[in-house]
Design a protein around this nucleic acid. Structure first.
Lengths: 266, 266
DNA sequence: GGGTAACTTG
DNA sequence: CAAGTTACCC
């Protein structure tokens, strides 16, 4: 089973790129974030035509929005509304075999990394707390957590640890919250586990850089985690099972995020 | 000498179409309206590269804006500000041989054809009055008036005289004002003069029509007039000297106006 | 830098 | 329907 997470930054604008990616990589399940459309605007026909007939969509107007599409059946679609904000940042489904797949778009958090001054940052921290509370329960459930979590937890998940310590996405309060969530949920951060501790890993490069590839000032914001019951399966195939599709960031009119994929026997 | 007038509806967006038209039709002078850009945003390099090195530009931000570009020298560039509105709706130049070429974008006039209720319509009528005043003087000057004048004066300058009598662009107060201007300025409306009185002539088709070509609900809003000293030269070459480039309206991502061209020996 | 939306103009 | 702006968000 191949599972992909990709912040697409408007699924309607980039549907052709998405279909191309599906054709080239043949994932079984694709988890999208920042779809930026209402559910009835979601390009369901294009996915169905490409063979991805199973969809769990949680969208809203203009902002955020997640969707999980698959060529295998998805059951028990369940969007959870975190922080009671009325926004569309999560959808869970059950995969064939019983694993529960959670697709997240965690709040970006604004510019100022101070929850007192910046309600967006407070929202981000509250969101992480709710996630932690949720995943501290039923830990024997086979879980896969994917999505744009908007935090690069490790020193080598950013191009410059020093220069980003006060930049939202890599501040200690965020990275600590993420590490606590991983620990309390009993999760394995698959990408980091399958690589050496000091290998630079990025899944996002700003649009603002002149030459994103040359300057390579990236951050690893997009994650695939598994709970304890799936740990062995996730690591069994070795490093080549986890791929960050950096080339896709260089396609025409790209999203600022690259897709991340995992091959796992479920 | 071939002279063209064309409401381009954003010169930056359609610069490729403009260059294609210049290459295909080889006009000597091109008068554009609704350039919709500031002078320093005008794509001067693209024109120069195509051989049109002489430019008289009068633009503003977002709205209106006119430009006259040529592969022959243009002297005495002079924008006139009509109605003291601070908008960019006119530029005059002198052509080799001495004819004065005035390029106009007359106000559209809004929806309601009542100057009491609709200040835009009042502005349009005031603009026509100022034009009339200006061109009632120095009538021995060889003049060419071109542009989007936003009025279809004759019964056969619209697809339905009856249905457009209360529609701005063809109301009696406007068509009368235009006829008075033609008369007082001693102008020849070249397109109408070179065709039979009852031939339908259009230069604009709304974007809103499903199939603009099939329904053919057009209006002749774009004009080329000459003053008395140029009348004979303008008519000398016969009907084929005046052309409405209807095919251009069918190009990819078109303006809603077609170019209108005149061949005249100056 | 690049999405979406609401607004204004034609 | 299709330009342009501004505002918001990432």
């Amino acid at each position: 089973m191949r599972i992909v997470t990709w912040n697409i930054n408007s699924v309607r604008l980039r549907i052709d790129s998405v279909i191309r990616f599906l054709e080239e990589e043949q994932p079984d399940v694709l988890c999208l974030q920042e779809t930026k459309c209402l559910n009835d605007q979601f390009p369901a026909k294009a996915f169905a035509k490409a063979g991805y007939e199973h969809m769990a969509v949680n969208g809203q107007k203009a902002y955020h929005g997640v969707a999980t599409v698959a060529r295998v059946p998805l059951t028990d679609h369940q969007p959870i509304e975190f922080c009671g904000m009325g926004d569309a940042r999560h959808i869970a489904v059950t995969l064939p075999g019983g694993a529960r797949l959670h697709n997240f778009y965690v709040p970006a958090g604004g510019d100022e990394p101070d929850p007192e001054k910046n309600p967006k940052f407070a929202h981000k921290l509250a969101f992480m707390e709710e996630m932690t509370k949720l995943f501290s329960k039923k830990k024997k459930e086979p879980r896969i957590i994917v999505g744009d979590l908007n935090i690069a937890p490790g020193e080598h998940d950013v191009w410059s640890h020093k220069q980003l310590l006060k930049v939202v996405s890599h501040t200690p309060v965020e990275t600590d919250a993420m590490k606590a969530l991983i620990k309390k949920g009993g999760f394995t951060d698959v990408a980091r586990e399958l690589t050496t501790e000091d290998e630079k890993l990025y899944s996002w490069w700003s649009y603002r850089a002149k030459d994103w590839a040359a300057s390579d000032r990236g951050r690893r914001l997009d994650h695939i985690w598994v709970s304890e019951p799936l740990r062995e399966a996730a690591l069994a195939k070795g490093p080549q099972a986890l791929k960050i599709h950096r080339d896709v960031r260089g396609w025409e009119k790209p999203s600022d995020h690259a897709p991340v994929s995992l091959d796992i026997d479920l």
